[in-house]
Design a protein around this nucleic acid. Structure first.
Lengths: 191, 191
DNA sequence: TGCCTATGAATGAAGG
DNA sequence: CCTTCATTCATAGGCA
């Protein structure tokens, strides 16, 4: 969502000096140990506990958090996988059967709406086949009769639904609402 | 693990041009409304019906499907939960700090650091209710009881733990060791 | 000096 | 709900 705000998310108006380095970088010893685990021991799928353990030990070699270890493994796996994928259509042999350049690259074929496993789009199947979502329930707080979006009144934000474009004219931009009122959440508005 | 087929499932052999964006991205208005529901109203567990309703309303602001809403809530919930979990072991706060004033990474605990996911720290194995989760059994190779870092022995590399460096010897490697055994990995970094 | 690459970080999506 | 994968963004650092 707020990818464009990646590191700056916490910024939120307060311009954190660019000098503060937010991004973790593995120290050589850390990197060596991580690689040792990954390549030497073939340790590619650390459990949460193991991640913590690894992180704990790596702290000797510099500041590090669990998430760094987590991301490190994730990214390494991803990059390895991607690398292999790139080499799969090597021109070995000669007959390149890459079917690129098909006609109508602009054909938006997703109109068929490939709804996968989520049956809630058609009929709520939760409970019957034990398919989807959670257990609607009793144990959460309010909201029972879902007045989420009053058809005629205000939306969750308390804005009246009028007929003036609000978001800036995205897809449809037919009926809208002036949802200018709330700013509570660090919204990281894009340009 | 057929996960790698994610977007490519329907693709088949037809290389979907990169132009067609498969992945949904919330438009700012959509995001704002979703956040409004989640944070403002504390609406965290939408039922299928509610998901449909939300989706319907969000369609005004751009293309969106039920599953997007569904996943959005799922991911945000997970994200939040894990985020809190992370606070459990914040880096050493007091005197013994690991920041050896190198790259100016004197940044202390970034509490405000919108830490992220990190699902670890939860289950995995030990079924509290007696039900031992299957989990890792035939997925990968071995490694079950993780003797990753023997408390008293050598680490993965066969180096004795001295605990004296404490990050003191950054690149210098105050602790030597016969880590010559493994060099298979491209130690690209450092320098 | 400016692009290019490697990689940390974030999140949508799927399976189980 | 948990775990993992894919994709994408952003940036540091290397090179041309």
């Amino acid at each position: 969502m707020e990818q464009q705000t990646q590191q700056q998310i916490e910024d939120g108006g307060n311009n954190q000096a660019a000098g503060t380095n937010n991004r973790w970088a593995p120290t050589p010893p850390q990197l060596r140990i991580l690689k040792g685990l990954y390549y030497d021991k073939g340790f590619k799928y650390p459990t949460p506990e193991q991640i913590q353990e690894i992180c704990l030990h790596l702290k000797q070699y510099g500041q590090i958090e669990d998430k760094n270890v987590f991301f490190w493994f994730q990214n390494l796996k991803a990059s390895e996988r991607q690398k292999l994928k790139e080499f799969r259509n090597v021109p070995v042999g000669g007959s390149l059967d890459l079917n690129f350049g098909s006609t109508g690259s602009t054909s938006n074929d997703r109109s068929t709406d490939r709804s996968i496993d989520l049956n809630f789009g058609s009929r709520v199947g939760y409970g019957a086949d034990g398919s989807i979502m959670e257990q609607r329930g009793e144990y959460h707080q309010e909201i029972e009769t879902l007045p989420l979006f009053p058809m005629h009144g205000e939306d969750i934000l308390g804005n009246m639904k009028t007929t003036s474009e609000g978001g800036g004219g995205y897809g449809g931009g037919s009926h809208i609402s002036l949802e200018l009122s709330l700013n509570s959440y660090r919204d990281a508005d894009m340009a």
